[in-house]
Amino acid sequence: MASVCGTLEVAVWRSASGRVAAWVDRCPHRGMRLSHGFVRGEMLSCIYHGWRFDGAGRCRKIPAHPDLDPPETIRTQSLACLDAQGVIWIASEAPAVAPPDLGNVVPLRSLTFEAGIDAVAAMTGEVPDRSLLRLDAHGPVPPLVLLLQALGPGRSAVHALAAPTGTGALVAASRALEDFRRRTEAQGIAA
């Protein structure tokens, strides 16, 4: 799938065995977005010419030349990528620290907001520039953790995790998130 890391456009994918990888969203051959590609087993194939890349980003197969063993220099531009606590984390360079401990939560859903991350944080009463928000339980809605990802100046992705609870409460949390999104986007229009 297509994602964003700062100003970099990124392709994130998971292999058949569950391994995740994140690359700059561009095939080294003719610049096609790799996020349009398809996964076969442990490889990602570019949709344009079918060039196949392994989990480390090295080109393993060029279908136009089936007998060629592609040189080692043909590779995608990799980002650091980690699958932990139900979240895929990416960074343009491997950070020295591990992702923050989210506590006892399970993944709920990811939503795209037509609002920048500062506007999303401000709506929760948090100061801007915080990408991890913890919301207390509210009525039937369990405690939530929101991870904010900037997709652009006026766009963000909100990855929500919830304290483990019954299905009814998770549905309520999901509805509450949609309501939160409506209010946040309306705020942007009003401003």
């Binding site: 456009e9 969203d25 561009r26 003719r30 610049g31 977005r33 349009h36 949709i47 344009y48």
Partner: peptide, 9 residues
């Protein structure tokens, strides 16, 4: 076209 509109740059 689905290719051409998705090449970078």
């Amino acid at each position: 076209r689905s290719i051409l509109e998705n090449q970078i740059p």
